[in-house]
């Protein structure tokens, strides 16, 4: 079944078509989610959210982009929404803890870094890197993550971000430069 046949099948209500879509894209979606939210439990929940969203809006998919571009866009927007929500929750909990609410203090703690694809001996380094990636500006974060995690070409990333190849190159370049400078600063501060 090619992409257009698959889309047609899902639009006409074929459960088999939807099952095929989930099985063909679930690894890509999960790994992308883990690239933004490095916690397997959260990433799996997000993966579910993505496919529910795909199911709900397949009728609105106009085929001006490829199916994979569209699914990646949904995945990214779900992940960014999740991160925003977590940050908001953390802020609220922080103010609640100032007021003296004890249970709020537990919520301030950062989510546990639990990426099953990270080797144990590199876990700490990867955790630090993910923390810094998370602080990058939105488009730099997306471009860098898709390039490094999904090994996407600049053209593919450009399609997802609706931007040119040169703009993607610039985003990745700036992301790398920013990460290096932040990490260098972090180590200088650490070592005095």
């Amino acid at each position: 079944m090619n992409e257009q046949q698959l889309i047609r099948a899902i639009k006409s209500g074929s459960e088999e078509g939807y099952r095929t879509l989930v099985s063909s894209y679930q690894n890509k979606v999960l790994n992308t989610c883990l690239g933004f939210v490095p916690n397997i439990q959260d990433a799996e929940d997000l993966c579910q959210e993505v496919f529910v969203q795909v199911f709900r809006s397949i009728d609105q998919f106009r085929e001006d982009a490829t199916l994979s571009t569209w699914i990646y866009r949904i995945s990214i927007s779900k992940c960014l929404e999740f991160i925003r929500h977590k940050k908001r929750k953390k802020r609220i909990s922080f103010f609640q803890s100032l007021v003296g609410l004890e249970e709020a203090k537990d919520k301030i703690a950062s989510p546990i870094f639990d990426h099953p694809g990270v080797q144990l001996e590199r876990k700490e380094e990867t955790r630090i890197l993910f923390e810094q990636i998370n602080q990058l500006p939105k488009n730099q974060k997306i471009a860098f993550t898709l390039h490094k995690i999904e090994h996407m070409s600049h053209k593919e990333i450009g399609d997802i971000l609706n931007t040119s190849v040169s703009a993607v190159e610039s985003l990745i370049f700036r992301a790398k430069r920013r990460l290096r400078s932040k990490l260098t600063k972090l180590y200088y501060e650490k070592e005095g």
Binding site: R19, V22, S23, Q26, N27, V29, L30, N31, L34, I40, E44, C47, Q48, F51, V52, F55, H115, P116, G117, V118, Q119, R122, E125, T126, I128, L129, K148, I149, K176, L179, R180, L183, T184, Y187
Partner: peptide, 24 residues
Amino acid sequence: VDRILESIDHIQRVEGNPYLYSRI
């Protein structure tokens, strides 16, 4: 810093949950 920046290149791909479809 180099080691940290390179750490992302050593991440292995994760296999999706086989029960994902039934969960959805």
